[in-house]
Design a protein around this nucleic acid. Sequence first.
RNA 1: GUAGAUAUAGCUCAGCUGGUUAGAGCGUCGGAUUGUGAUUCCGAAGGUCGUGGGUUCGAGCCCCAUUAUUUACCCCA
Length: 473
Amino acid sequence: MSAQKPSIPQGTRDFGPAVVARRNYIFGVIRRTFEKFGYAPLETPTLENLSVLTGKYGEEGDQLLFKVLNSGNFLKKQKGEVVKDEVTPDDLQAGPRAVLPKIAEKGLRYDLTVPFARYVVMNRGTLTFPFKRYQIQPVWRADRPQRGRYREFYQCDADVVGTDSLLCEAEIVLMMCEVLNGIGLTDFTIKINHRRVLGAIYQALGGEGTEMDLFTAIDKLDKIGRDGVEKELAERGFSPDATDRLFALLGVEGSFEEKLERLLAGFVTAGVDADNATADGYKGLQDLRRVYEYLQEFGFAQFDHLDFDVTLARGLSYYTGCIFEIKINNVNMGSVSGGGRYDNLTGAFGLPGVSGVGFSFGVDRLYDCLEELNLFPAAVATTTRCLVANFDADAERAVLPVLRQLREAGVASELYPEPGKLARQFKYADAKGIPFVLLQGSEERAAGQFKLKTLSTGEERVLSLEQVLAELA
RNA sequence: GUAGAUAUAGCUCAGCUGGUUAGAGCGUCGGAUUGUGAUUCCGAAGGUCGUGGGUUCGAGCCCCAUUAUUUACCCCA
């Protein structure tokens, strides 16, 4: 067998020590924030039954699911045993749709929200509601990789189910700010909108075309511009008149509150009907106003980062209330976070009427942003604090108790594992970013002293063990 | 699924109109220095030029196919 060039699957990555340290730094900020807001950790299996995953992400989503082949021989009946769901020639003739359910019954998780919904339903008897959980795990999508898009990537979700309170929405904004501030990002925009505002816009246009066509077209506004949206809507059966009315509504400007008022006036003028309205106003606008008020009452100080963006639509079909998205403004990168409220996510698993709201950070994209903006603190990288030099067998023996005492004092230390040239050992320390090297050759040992070298300055000092420990601890 | 780009040393990349033995920087290793890294100086190792075919007296370079990587579209974190 000839040696093969090793490789990893498309869209996956190895993370070396330095990268892991930086990723953990981001994870740490997110985890501490979630916990500070009262969310408890949850983990679910990498594999879910395919029946849990399919049909939750739309037709395209189903195609992006990684399916896992059943073990065992599903093509041929073994001698003397019965194979359940054997693939028949007829199935093969009928194509993938007939074959797939028989050869794959598990899939890799596609996001963290659906497994969470599945968990809530399975454990509804034991959970205390409202249930707040966070979850930091990788997810997989069989997408074409490109900038900021991977086939394996981490999501950091925080969701609360079992309450309609808009306080949760307001707290999502708070957590988003806290995390972004915590990792040093300053130029960002938290976009917020409401599915029912979009619904009202659809009605204001007179009910032409479909909601989905309208929303996906609106969502692209900042990318393809007004002309592009007009063209796309025309192709989907929207009249020029409707398109004009759309841009009149999308064009509302001003502060958060001013936009709310102007949209309300627009909806009234357009005669948006009562299906989408309540006695005292329009539900979507009302919700957004309440979220805004909560933030004010809390003493939120970063309204300049919060943007009521009427064009924000988001793809996932299960959102029903507020929707969120974060854009880092000075980096060319897709959204680093998104979320929203879903009134009936657990309905698919037989538990209707449970409302939830949540959001997710894409760590891999946050990482790419920090990298590009050079925002990683230098201190994140190193692990070992002190390298103990290894002169020879005698010195090695003598220095082992010192190694123990360094570690007992909480100083991350290592002894160079074999005696050898000091040049090599210093190079090792330098390459690994170890700040101190501790030396005790025959001279120092005779004097009962140590030599401690600070690599960044080149300074060397002769010290007692107590002094070394005091210096490094 | 659609379209483009790229593939040469461990890494980043040069390589002229197709012409002798394919180069540089960084990294690695050895030495200058048998008790000192980063810095300096000297030296060495390292290549089926992604793979397969074709054109040609001659191919890293041109043509075809194929694989991988990558960017954009769709969609999304």
